[in-house]
Amino acid sequence: MLLEQKTVLVKEMLIKTIFAGFGGQGVLSMGLNLSQAAMSEGKHVTYLPSYGAEVRGGTANCTVAISDEEIASPVASSPDFVVAMNQPSLVRFQNQIQSGGLLFINSSITEPVVSRGDIEVIEVPASDIAEELKSPKSANMVMMGAFSKKTNLVLLSTLIEVLKNTFKTKKMLIDINKKALTAGYDLF
């Protein structure tokens, strides 16, 4: 017992986020977007997608770790933040979040049933807002905007810079995704 008390975990700045949702909702691009933004802000970053049989059947997820130091493990058994773009993801990941962590829910298509009181639930009607912007595929970027505002992990301007790079060859997509990002950011 005494031994356990001597072990004080030093909290280094290490934040792990899981993005999860249906295939096609752009959850992997959210992860990539965040990774690249954090990288260009000079942070250590790892990005680990789910793979193999796990991603067959329509659900996908990825884990992004961001730190000031070398990252030991890219795996998050208890993530700080979870972004659930659909119901199955919410069910699967809500119990893994660290106490005091944030749970982002795409409330347009997800019943926000959360059984824990020790985490903060942030409802973002991402799909509805994307519809309003006439770009249903940009729901992920609406969510990303809200995520960056609430977590302060990376700057909105960095995310936009990353977008410019991602869509170098498809300029028209930059504008619409930028709008989506900003709309999400301005929600809170």
């Binding site: 001597k6 072990t7 030093v10 130091e69 070398e70 030991a72 493990s73």
Partner: peptide
């Protein structure tokens, strides 16, 4: 080894 390294950093801090 990279997982161990993370653990060792924290052990040192202790």
């Amino acid at each position: 080894a990279r997982i161990a390294k993370g653990a060792i950093r924290n052990a040192r801090a202790n």
